[in-house]
Design a protein around this nucleic acid. Structure first.
Length: 215
DNA sequence: ATGACGATTTACT
DNA sequence: GTAAATCGTCATA
Protein backbone atom coordinates (compact mmCIF):
# COMPACT_ATOMS: atom_id res chain seq x y z
CA UNK A 1 0.00 0.00 0.00
CA UNK A 2 1.43 3.33 -1.06
CA UNK A 3 2.02 6.26 1.27
CA UNK A 4 0.28 9.61 1.18
CA UNK A 5 2.26 12.10 -0.92
CA UNK A 6 4.14 14.66 1.18
CA UNK A 7 4.60 18.34 0.55
CA UNK A 8 7.75 17.87 -1.54
CA UNK A 9 5.80 15.82 -4.08
CA UNK A 10 3.81 18.91 -5.05
CA UNK A 11 6.62 21.47 -4.77
CA UNK A 12 7.51 21.45 -8.46
CA UNK A 13 6.47 23.24 -11.63
CA UNK A 14 2.89 22.54 -12.78
CA UNK A 15 3.90 20.64 -15.93
CA UNK A 16 6.06 18.25 -13.90
CA UNK A 17 3.29 17.77 -11.35
CA UNK A 18 0.68 17.18 -14.07
CA UNK A 19 2.89 14.48 -15.62
CA UNK A 20 3.88 12.97 -12.30
CA UNK A 21 0.24 12.62 -11.21
CA UNK A 22 -0.53 10.23 -14.07
CA UNK A 23 -0.73 6.71 -12.68
CA UNK A 24 -1.02 7.97 -9.09
CA UNK A 25 -4.07 7.16 -6.98
CA UNK A 26 -6.53 9.78 -5.75
CA UNK A 27 -8.06 8.65 -2.46
CA UNK A 28 -10.96 9.94 -0.39
CA UNK A 29 -11.69 8.46 3.02
CA UNK A 30 -15.19 9.48 4.11
CA UNK A 31 -16.17 9.88 7.74
CA UNK A 32 -18.86 7.20 7.34
CA UNK A 33 -16.20 4.64 6.44
CA UNK A 34 -16.58 4.69 2.68
CA UNK A 35 -13.27 4.72 0.85
CA UNK A 36 -13.06 5.92 -2.74
CA UNK A 37 -10.02 5.67 -4.99
CA UNK A 38 -9.14 6.00 -8.66
CA UNK A 39 -6.00 6.04 -10.77
CA UNK A 40 -5.39 9.42 -12.38
CA UNK A 41 -5.29 9.08 -16.18
CA UNK A 42 -5.59 12.69 -17.42
CA UNK A 43 -4.34 16.06 -16.14
CA UNK A 44 -3.71 19.61 -17.31
CA UNK A 45 -1.12 22.17 -16.22
CA UNK A 46 -2.06 25.80 -15.51
CA UNK A 47 0.96 28.05 -15.50
CA UNK A 48 -0.18 31.04 -13.47
CA UNK A 49 0.12 34.77 -14.11
CA UNK A 50 1.46 34.35 -17.68
CA UNK A 51 -1.16 31.79 -18.69
CA UNK A 52 -4.24 33.34 -20.33
CA UNK A 53 -6.22 30.16 -19.60
CA UNK A 54 -5.45 30.16 -15.87
CA UNK A 55 -7.76 31.64 -13.26
CA UNK A 56 -4.69 33.37 -11.84
CA UNK A 57 -3.83 35.05 -15.18
CA UNK A 58 -2.30 38.50 -14.63
CA UNK A 59 -2.23 37.84 -10.90
CA UNK A 60 -6.00 37.72 -10.57
CA UNK A 61 -6.86 36.94 -6.98
CA UNK A 62 -10.27 36.72 -5.33
CA UNK A 63 -12.26 34.66 -2.87
CA UNK A 64 -12.90 32.19 -5.66
CA UNK A 65 -9.28 31.36 -6.54
CA UNK A 66 -7.56 32.24 -3.26
CA UNK A 67 -6.50 28.60 -2.82
CA UNK A 68 -4.26 28.85 -5.88
CA UNK A 69 -2.04 31.12 -3.79
CA UNK A 70 -1.74 28.57 -1.02
CA UNK A 71 1.21 26.22 -0.45
CA UNK A 72 1.85 23.33 -2.86
CA UNK A 73 -0.45 20.42 -2.09
CA UNK A 74 -3.46 22.68 -1.51
CA UNK A 75 -6.74 21.64 -3.17
CA UNK A 76 -8.29 24.24 -5.46
CA UNK A 77 -11.93 23.29 -6.09
CA UNK A 78 -14.01 25.72 -8.10
CA UNK A 79 -17.63 25.88 -9.27
CA UNK A 80 -18.39 26.55 -12.92
CA UNK A 81 -21.16 26.58 -15.52
CA UNK A 82 -23.68 27.00 -12.73
CA UNK A 83 -23.59 23.30 -11.89
CA UNK A 84 -20.14 21.69 -11.98
CA UNK A 85 -17.06 21.47 -9.77
CA UNK A 86 -13.44 20.89 -10.85
CA UNK A 87 -10.57 19.67 -8.67
CA UNK A 88 -7.01 21.01 -8.93
CA UNK A 89 -3.85 20.55 -6.90
CA UNK A 90 -1.62 23.57 -6.31
CA UNK A 91 2.00 23.17 -7.46
CA UNK A 92 5.10 25.36 -7.46
CA UNK A 93 6.56 27.39 -4.63
CA UNK A 94 4.35 28.79 -1.83
CA UNK A 95 2.44 31.81 -3.13
CA UNK A 96 2.92 30.91 -6.78
CA UNK A 97 -0.60 30.46 -8.28
CA UNK A 98 0.09 27.44 -10.51
CA UNK A 99 -1.78 24.13 -10.45
CA UNK A 100 -2.63 20.82 -12.08
CA UNK A 101 -6.25 20.08 -12.96
CA UNK A 102 -7.30 16.46 -12.44
CA UNK A 103 -9.42 15.74 -15.51
CA UNK A 104 -10.06 11.98 -15.43
CA UNK A 105 -9.37 8.82 -13.47
CA UNK A 106 -9.98 5.08 -13.56
CA UNK A 107 -12.20 4.00 -10.63
CA UNK A 108 -10.68 1.44 -8.25
CA UNK A 109 -12.43 1.40 -4.84
CA UNK A 110 -15.96 2.56 -3.99
CA UNK A 111 -17.30 2.11 -7.50
CA UNK A 112 -20.79 1.46 -6.18
CA UNK A 113 -20.91 4.80 -4.34
CA UNK A 114 -19.50 6.62 -7.37
CA UNK A 115 -22.19 5.05 -9.54
CA UNK A 116 -24.91 6.15 -7.11
CA UNK A 117 -23.68 9.73 -7.03
CA UNK A 118 -23.27 10.00 -10.78
CA UNK A 119 -26.68 8.44 -11.42
CA UNK A 120 -28.39 10.78 -8.95
CA UNK A 121 -26.76 13.90 -10.34
CA UNK A 122 -27.50 12.88 -13.85
CA UNK A 123 -31.16 12.11 -13.12
CA UNK A 124 -31.50 15.44 -11.31
CA UNK A 125 -30.13 17.35 -14.30
CA UNK A 126 -31.96 15.38 -16.95
CA UNK A 127 -35.10 16.74 -18.53
CA UNK A 128 -35.87 13.61 -20.55
CA UNK A 129 -38.99 11.74 -19.32
CA UNK A 130 -37.91 8.16 -19.99
CA UNK A 131 -35.27 6.04 -18.25
CA UNK A 132 -31.64 6.90 -18.99
CA UNK A 133 -29.14 4.40 -20.34
CA UNK A 134 -27.05 2.69 -17.67
CA UNK A 135 -23.76 4.27 -16.65
CA UNK A 136 -20.59 2.39 -17.46
CA UNK A 137 -17.38 2.33 -15.45
CA UNK A 138 -15.89 4.74 -17.98
CA UNK A 139 -18.72 7.26 -17.31
CA UNK A 140 -17.86 7.72 -13.64
CA UNK A 141 -14.66 9.81 -13.62
CA UNK A 142 -14.03 10.54 -17.32
CA UNK A 143 -14.09 14.35 -17.00
CA UNK A 144 -13.20 16.93 -14.34
CA UNK A 145 -16.80 17.52 -13.23
CA UNK A 146 -17.75 13.84 -13.43
CA UNK A 147 -14.80 13.00 -11.19
CA UNK A 148 -15.87 15.61 -8.64
CA UNK A 149 -19.43 14.32 -8.68
CA UNK A 150 -18.32 10.70 -8.24
CA UNK A 151 -15.97 11.65 -5.38
CA UNK A 152 -18.44 14.10 -3.82
CA UNK A 153 -15.93 16.95 -4.06
CA UNK A 154 -17.28 20.49 -3.86
CA UNK A 155 -16.32 23.92 -2.52
CA UNK A 156 -16.24 22.52 1.01
CA UNK A 157 -12.95 20.85 -0.03
CA UNK A 158 -11.44 24.03 -1.45
CA UNK A 159 -8.26 24.94 0.42
CA UNK A 160 -7.78 21.47 1.89
CA UNK A 161 -4.12 20.56 2.49
CA UNK A 162 -3.66 17.19 0.76
CA UNK A 163 -0.25 16.79 2.44
CA UNK A 164 -1.75 17.23 5.91
CA UNK A 165 -1.67 14.05 8.02
CA UNK A 166 -5.40 14.02 8.74
CA UNK A 167 -6.69 15.14 5.38
CA UNK A 168 -9.70 13.13 4.09
CA UNK A 169 -8.35 13.42 0.52
CA UNK A 170 -4.82 12.60 -0.62
CA UNK A 171 -2.60 11.29 -3.41
CA UNK A 172 -0.71 8.01 -3.31
CA UNK A 173 2.34 8.28 -5.61
CA UNK A 174 3.16 5.68 -8.23
CA UNK A 175 6.27 4.94 -10.24
CA UNK A 176 6.75 7.61 -12.88
CA UNK A 177 5.46 6.65 -16.32
CA UNK A 178 7.83 6.61 -19.26
CA UNK A 179 7.38 9.26 -21.98
CA UNK A 180 6.12 6.58 -24.38
CA UNK A 181 3.17 5.90 -22.07
CA UNK A 182 2.08 9.56 -22.00
CA UNK A 183 0.18 11.40 -24.73
CA UNK A 184 -0.12 15.20 -24.84
CA UNK A 185 -2.63 17.58 -26.41
CA UNK A 186 -4.07 21.06 -26.22
CA UNK A 187 -6.06 21.76 -23.09
CA UNK A 188 -9.84 21.27 -23.28
CA UNK A 189 -12.33 24.14 -23.09
CA UNK A 190 -9.88 27.05 -23.18
CA UNK A 191 -10.26 28.17 -26.81
CA UNK A 192 -10.66 31.77 -25.58
CA UNK A 193 -7.02 31.81 -24.43
CA UNK A 194 -5.41 32.57 -27.80
CA UNK A 195 -1.88 31.23 -28.20
CA UNK A 196 -2.07 29.64 -24.74
CA UNK A 197 -4.91 27.44 -25.97
CA UNK A 198 -2.52 25.85 -28.46
CA UNK A 199 0.14 24.79 -25.96
CA UNK A 200 0.29 21.06 -25.29
CA UNK A 201 -0.41 21.23 -21.57
CA UNK A 202 -2.80 18.28 -21.32
CA UNK A 203 -1.37 14.89 -20.36
CA UNK A 204 -3.01 11.46 -20.72
CA UNK A 205 -2.14 7.85 -20.20
CA UNK A 206 -1.95 6.54 -23.73
CA UNK A 207 -4.94 4.43 -24.87
CA UNK A 208 -6.61 4.46 -21.46
CA UNK A 209 -10.43 4.15 -21.86
CA UNK A 210 -11.21 6.39 -18.87
CA UNK A 211 -9.98 9.70 -20.34
CA UNK A 212 -12.46 12.51 -21.10
CA UNK A 213 -11.55 13.00 -24.78
CA UNK A 214 -9.28 10.59 -26.68
CA UNK A 215 -5.92 12.07 -27.66
C1' DA B 1 -27.29 47.09 -10.19
C1' DT B 2 -26.62 44.59 -14.23
C1' DG B 3 -24.91 41.65 -17.85
C1' DA B 4 -21.77 38.36 -19.87
C1' DC B 5 -19.29 34.42 -19.21
C1' DG B 6 -17.42 30.11 -18.15
C1' DA B 7 -10.72 24.93 -16.95
C1' DT B 8 -18.56 21.07 -18.46
C1' DT B 9 -21.91 17.65 -19.41
C1' DT B 10 -25.68 15.84 -21.77
C1' DA B 11 -29.04 15.14 -25.21
C1' DC B 12 -30.39 15.78 -29.71
C1' DT B 13 -29.94 16.68 -35.14
C1' DG C 1 -21.71 18.80 -34.83
C1' DT C 2 -24.97 22.03 -32.18
C1' DA C 3 -27.35 23.68 -28.20
C1' DA C 4 -29.30 23.90 -23.61
C1' DA C 5 -28.94 23.85 -18.70
C1' DT C 6 -27.81 27.03 -14.71
C1' DC C 7 -25.68 30.36 -11.31
C1' DG C 8 -21.44 32.27 -8.90
C1' DT C 9 -18.18 35.60 -10.17
C1' DC C 10 -16.31 39.60 -12.07
C1' DA C 11 -16.03 43.72 -14.92
C1' DT C 12 -18.46 47.78 -16.05
C1' DA C 13 -21.33 51.59 -14.76
Amino acid sequence: MAQRARRAFYRTDPVSLARRLLGCTLVRQESGGVRLSAMIVETEAYLGVEDAAAHSYKGRRSARNESMYGPPGTAYVYFTYGMHHCFNIVAGAPGEPVAALIRAAEPLEGVKVMLERRSLGRARRSRAPGPLPALRASDLCSGPAKLCEAFGLDRAFDGLDLAGPGSPVWIEPAAALGPEQIATSRRIGVAYAGAWARRRLRFLIRANPHVSVPA
